[in-house]
Computed example of a mutant assay.
Amino acid sequence: MRSLLIAAALFLPLSAYAEVKVVEPWIPEAPPNAQALGAFMVLENDEDREVKVVSAWAPGFDTIELHKSVEENGMHKMIKQDALVIPPMGSLELRPGSYHVMLIGVHKPPKAGDVIPLRLDFEGLPSQTIQVPVKKRAEMMKRMAPMQGH
């Protein structure tokens, strides 16, 4: 009986250990007077249910928020999100002009080549810390252009 309980315990929590795959994360190099930066990446979900990013944290910033950029009446603005939703068996692209992680209150502007540890907190899944490279914005925008049609 005991071995049956142990076996059941091993199989039941498997979905709790599922992990969101983070593809090509990056943060743009900051100008010296930057007060906020965006973190961009693609989040892939292999679960058969939606996964929510509910918060994030990184050293060197006062506040970190989840945002979506929108254009209304010719004005560009950012709207704070309670969560970023990754669809079941799908992905969510965080990119300039769309969803992103907003890093507010920059203590020391990062330069290309730096790496910033960014913790993503998920609803119902363990947090995940990723190493996000700082890259030149122009270089990354060129690489992302073919992905814009997705």
Rank of each mutant, 00 (worst) to 15 (best):
V51F: 07
V53A: 04
V53T: 07
V53K: 04
V54N: 03
V54Y: 09
V54K: 13
V54R: 15
S55P: 05
S55D: 14
S55I: 03
S55M: 08
A56Q: 08
A56E: 07
A56S: 13
W57D: 14
W57H: 15
W57K: 15
W57N: 06
P59F: 11
P59A: 07
P59I: 08
G60R: 09
G60I: 13
F61M: 10
F61D: 10
F61S: 04
D62W: 09
D62N: 14
D62L: 08
T63F: 07
I64F: 05
L66D: 04
L66P: 00
K68R: 13
V70M: 08
M75C: 00
H76W: 14
H76T: 10
H76M: 09
K77I: 00
K80E: 12
Q81F: 06
Q81C: 03
Q81K: 14
D82L: 15
D82S: 10
D82H: 15
D82F: 10
L84V: 00
L84Q: 05
V85L: 09
I86N: 02
I86T: 06
P87R: 08
P88L: 05
P88S: 04
P88I: 03
P88T: 03
M89R: 11
G90K: 03
G90N: 02
G90Y: 10
S91M: 11
S91F: 09
S91A: 08
L92D: 03
L92Y: 03
L94N: 05
L94M: 13
L94G: 04
R95P: 00
P96G: 07
G97T: 00
S98V: 01
Y99F: 15
Y99I: 11
H100K: 15
H100L: 14
V101S: 00
V101D: 04
M102Q: 14
M102W: 10
M102R: 15
L103C: 09
V106D: 02
V106L: 01
V106E: 00
H107V: 10
H107W: 13
H107K: 12
H107I: 11
K108W: 02
K108H: 07
K108S: 07
K108G: 01
P109C: 02
P110E: 01
P110F: 00
K111P: 04
A112I: 04
A112T: 13
G113T: 06
G113F: 09
G113W: 06
G113Q: 07
D114H: 04
D114N: 12
D114M: 02
D114E: 08
I116C: 02
I116V: 09
L118V: 12
L118K: 04
R119S: 10
L120P: 01
L120N: 02
D121G: 02
D121E: 14
